[in-house]
Design a protein around this nucleic acid. Structure first.
Length: 576
DNA sequence: GTAGGGTTAG
């Protein structure tokens, strides 16, 4: 029986040699990786389309899926259109691919329009159709509607949800921060017939980690394992990521060992999480060790790995090292992208090597890379930092002309840069022109302006801004209070200063090391030694130390103070 | 078992 079937198949293949030939090429494309993958798929598609009679729609959908997996959604849609033009009829599979592509291209509405056509064309929507639409709504940040659609499908018994559909809803809930609701839905699944799989658990585990509830995530992980659901790379990667984010690198490293013991192989992404965490935390050495570990396992570092290292070195100001890594990656044929270069541009700017930054900024554009908000923001910071506000302004105009919307970081840089270059009126004017509520109510921007105005010799404007902030009902933070303390001190308003210090504690905002340093320094400058003494003691009692600048003000006073003065004792204690 | 789901850089 088996034998006959096989012969039958072989006979069929010989009659239509293209079928098996195409199948082979599709399979090899599915497993392929590398830059030519999409092009090869397109080439194959053309061949298939020209073949008479055309291969089955089955093969076409498989091939287009390759393109979709490579995130070439517009291309996929064009191919589907070409098939239609060649008279190949669509089915629910091609329609679902089309809906998915439109959703990914931010056109959910079009996806729903296609849902209507499925009925008209006599293709009843499948579970996947609805899942795709739910996911589309989630992608468009319309989670509430996604949940409503899901509920409606259940209520009207349109379909019986499966793991994938539950997963999309759980994912949506997590995305908007409703992890608790997601957890409830997970529990609901556990109690029903459609049990959650590793994918659904992983989403919630990841979300718990992002909510800073890493220990809850670990508990859920244990519970999942108890239920016989095995963790996979993504589960472990999420946990490693969560642990790293909260400085628990040692546990993260242990998690890596655990996963390998369980027979789950870490991926490049898993290692990238570690590499990135080490870099951000300042230990590029450990990051390099992690890279070595991944290479030992036969994994190839990718653009993310190298970019993380470059960023790590740039953050430490070790630009030579960063440049070395860049050379290394180019030698390995890994193409740096805008994120890679942004780190370098930022590094140059921070090191005041503005010419190098400008050069690289030009060079990447010649290569065809498009600078983004981060590129422009770094450049702006560099130009203001090197005392060239005119060039900065020009670049800001260029950025807007290109239709790039500045983000809150850009505005911080702009306001700070202007103030630093004695342009506090310009900074204020820019701030007044802002229209977004989020920006107008950002305490950080106020802090910059208050500090800026005061440094530009306009303490009254600084005080007005502080009043304005409080009137708006915004909550000043430690930085706001600290800046204001320095403003009051500078103006000799010692009473106001003390009052604010008391008020901030009342508001649950404890002074930090910076607050005390600023206060003591200002008091010393004003020759208010007795007051300085009081706060110096208080800060030390609270576990803070005078910083370098405070010391500079402190040391010259030793000869002037009496032998048994407390200030002298404190200084001696600190220097011994 | 061709379509739909989870981690990942500045």
């Amino acid at each position: 029986m088996k034998c006959t079937r096989r012969i039958g198949l072989r006979y069929y293949s010989t009659a239509s040699p293209s079928t098996s030939h195409f199948n082979q090429r599709i399979t090899s494309l599915k497993n392929a990786s590398g830059p030519t993958k999409v092009n090869d798929a397109l080439q194959l598609f053309d061949e298939m389309l020209q073949r008479q009679p055309p291969p089955s729609i089955f093969q076409f959908t498989q091939l287009i899926s390759v393109i979709v997996k490579k995130k070439q959604y517009s291309t996929a849609l064009i191919l589907l259109e070409q098939m239609k033009l060649m008279g190949i009829p669509s089915n629910i599979y091609t329609i679902n691919i089309s809906i998915n592509c439109h959703c990914r291209l931010n056109q959910v509405a079009y996806g729903f329009a296609l849902l209507a056509t499925t009925f008209k064309q006599g293709h009843p929507p499948s579970l996947a159709t609805y899942t795709t639409l739910i996911h589309g709504l989630v992608l468009a940040d319309r989670v509430f509607e996604a949940v409503e659609l899901f509920k409606k499908l259940l209520r009207e018994k349109v379909c019986e949800p499966n793991q994938v559909m539950y997963g999309s809803v759980i994912n949506g809930l997590c995305k908007v921060g409703h992890t608790r609701k997601a957890l409830e839905l997970l529990r609901f699944m556990e109690s029903g017939s459609c049990k959650p799989g590793v994918e659904q658990y992983s989403v919630v585990i990841d979300s718990l980690c992002k909510d800073k509830m890493v220990d809850h995530a670990l508990e859920l992980f244990a519970k999942m394992t108890e239920k016989g659901v095995l963790a996979d790379v993504i589960t472990y990667s999420s946990l490693i990521h969560g642990l790293c984010n909260f400085g628990r690198e040692t546990e993260a490293a242990k998690m890596l060992r655990d996963m390998e013991e369980e027979g789950v192989s870490p991926s490049v992404d898993t290692f990238n999480i570690l590499v990135n965490a080490f870099c951000k935390q300042g230990s590029v050495k450990d990051a390099e060790l992690a890279v070595q570990a991944m290479v030992r396992r036969g994994l190839n570092p990718d653009v993310i790995t190298y970019s993380a290292l470059i960023d790590g070195y740039c953050l430490r100001g070790e630009i030579d090292k960063a440049e070395e890594v860049l050379d290394g990656m180019v030698k390995r044929d890994i193409v740096p992208n805008i994120i890679t270069y942004n780190s370098l541009i930022n590094g140059y700017c921070k090191k005041k090597q503005i010419d190098k930054a400008r050069h690289l900024f030009q060079e990447i554009q010649d290569k065809g890379l498009i600078p983004d908000v981060v590129t422009y923001s770094s450049m702006l910071q560099g130009l203001y930092g090197s005392g060239n506000p005119a060039a900065a302004r020009e670049l800001f105009n260029e950025m807007q002309a290109k239709g790039l919307a500045p983000n809150i970081c850009t505005y911080r840089i702009l306001l700070h840069g202007m103030c630093k270059n004695s342009q506090s009126p310009d900074a204020l004017a820019l701030f007044r022109s802002l229209e977004s509520k989020e920006l107008m109510e950002d305490v950080g921007l106020y802090n910059i302006l208050i500090d800026g105005c005061s440094k530009c010799g306009k303490p009254n404007e600084a005080m007005d801004l502080f009043d304005e902030l409080c009137l708006k009902g915004l909550k000043p933070n430690v930085r706001t209070y600290t800046v204001m303390i320095s403003v009051y001190c500078g103006e000799g308003l010692l009473g106001k200063c003390k009052e604010l210090l008391r008020k901030m504690e009342e508001n649950g905002c404890l002074p930090n090391s910076m607050t005390y340093n600023v206060l003591v320094r200002e008091l010393l400058k004003k020759n208010e030694c007795q007051e300085a003494e009081i706060y110096l003691e208080e800060m030390i009692n609270r576990g803070f130390m005078p910083d370098h600048a405070t010391f500079e003000n402190l040391l010259p006073r030793i000869p002037n103070v009496g032998k048994d003065s407390r200030l002298r004792t404190i200084i001696l204690k600190l220097t011994s």
